[in-house]
Simulated assay, not measured.
Amino acid sequence: MLTNEKAKPLLLVLVGPTAVGKTNLSLTLAEQHQCEIISGDSMQVYRGMDIGTAKASMEERARITHHMIDTHHPDDPFSVAEFQERVRTLIPEIHSRGKLPFIVGGTGLYVESVCYNYQFSEANSDEDLRQQLDAFAILHGDQALHDQLREVDPASAERLHPNDRRRIIRAIEVFRVTGTKLSEQLANQTKESPYNLCIVGLTMDRALLYKRIEERIDIMIEQGLVDEVKRLIDEGCNPDSVAMKGLGYKEIIGYLRGEYSYEGAVELLKRDTRRFAKRQLSWFRHMKDIQWVDVTETTNFSAHLANINDIITGKFVQ
C-alpha cells in the first residue's frame, strides 16, 4: 500500500470526540494496514497521567507501536508547534520502516497542524504581556481571563476551556500584538497537505455519546483517577501547571482542595467532558477532507471496520 518515492507520502488519520471508540478501531486498523500509531492527543504526552487521558494500555502499546505518549513531565511546556515538529520527523521515520503512519486522536488543532503543515511563529510574542496576563489570571481567576479572550476572539474562546490559561494567554497575545484574531490566522492557513491524506472521522448519536462519556468517567474513577492525581501532586507536580489543569485533573484537584465534594467533582467532570466533546465535534465539522463514519450501532464493529477499510482502499489503492 505504501506510496512510491515520487508521490506524496501516505498519512492515515482517525479523529472523533472522546469516548466515541477510536482506540479499539485504531488497533485493528493498525494491524490490518501495518501501521504505527501517533497519538493526536495533546495530553497523552505527559508521563504519569494515564487514567485521566485514557492512554492506550501497555498491552495495547505492545500490540502496536505508539508514538507521542509519555514524552514530557507534567510540568514541562508542550505546544502545537512542538507536536507538529516531532510528528513531521516521525512520519518519514515510520515510512522508512515500511509502515504506515497513523495519527489517532481528538485534539483538532494538533492533528490539523500536521495534516496541512500550518506555519507557527513566535515572532509575534510579548513576554511582558504574557506575564501581565498571567498575573491578571492569578488575581482575578481564569474565567476572567477567558472573558477577556471572548471579547476579542469569540471563536478561540469557544475552542479553549477557561482553565487552559497558557493557550488563552497566547490567543490574547496574538490579537494584542498583531491586531488579528488567532482564529482568523488559523482559518487563513493554506489547507494544502504535504501528504496523501486519508482522514476518517467517527461520529455517533449525541445522547449515546454522552452516555458513553459518563460511563467512561465512572470507569476512570474505579480505576483510581483520584489516587493518580494525589500521586502526581505527591511527586511534586505543580497542581497549577497546564497539564494538571487538563480535563479530569482540574476537577479532582478542586475536590482535593475542598472546593467541592467528591460527588460534585465527578458530576463536574462529566459535564466538562460533555462540553469538551461538543467542542471537538464543532472543530472537526470545519475540517476538510474528513470522511465520516457513524458508529452509533456499537455492536456492528465489523461493519464499521469494513466501512473504514473501504474508505482507506478508495483513497490509497489506485
Rank of each mutant, 00 (worst) to 15 (best):
F284I: 10
R271M: 09
T178Q: 11
G98A: 14
H95Y: 01
Q132K: 14
G224K: 10
K270W: 06
S79G: 10
R216P: 02
P17V: 10
E192K: 14
V295K: 04
P154E: 11
P92W: 10
L27K: 05
R61A: 08
D75E: 12
H286W: 05
Q280H: 09
N188Q: 15
V45L: 08
K315W: 04
V293E: 00
G254Y: 14
I221P: 02
F175I: 08
G236D: 02
R61F: 08
V20N: 01
I312M: 10
C115Y: 08
A303P: 02
A155M: 14
G106E: 04
E85Q: 14
D234N: 12
D142V: 03
I221C: 07
I64P: 00
A187G: 13
A306Q: 15
Y255I: 13
N163I: 00
F83D: 00
H73K: 15
D142K: 12
D234Y: 13
T3Q: 15
E222C: 07
L247I: 14
T23D: 12
I233E: 01
V229W: 00
G106F: 07
E235D: 14
Q143S: 09
T296Y: 06
D128S: 11
L232W: 04
R257T: 04
L209S: 06
E127Y: 14
D142F: 06
I38L: 14
I219C: 12
G40C: 11
Y118G: 02
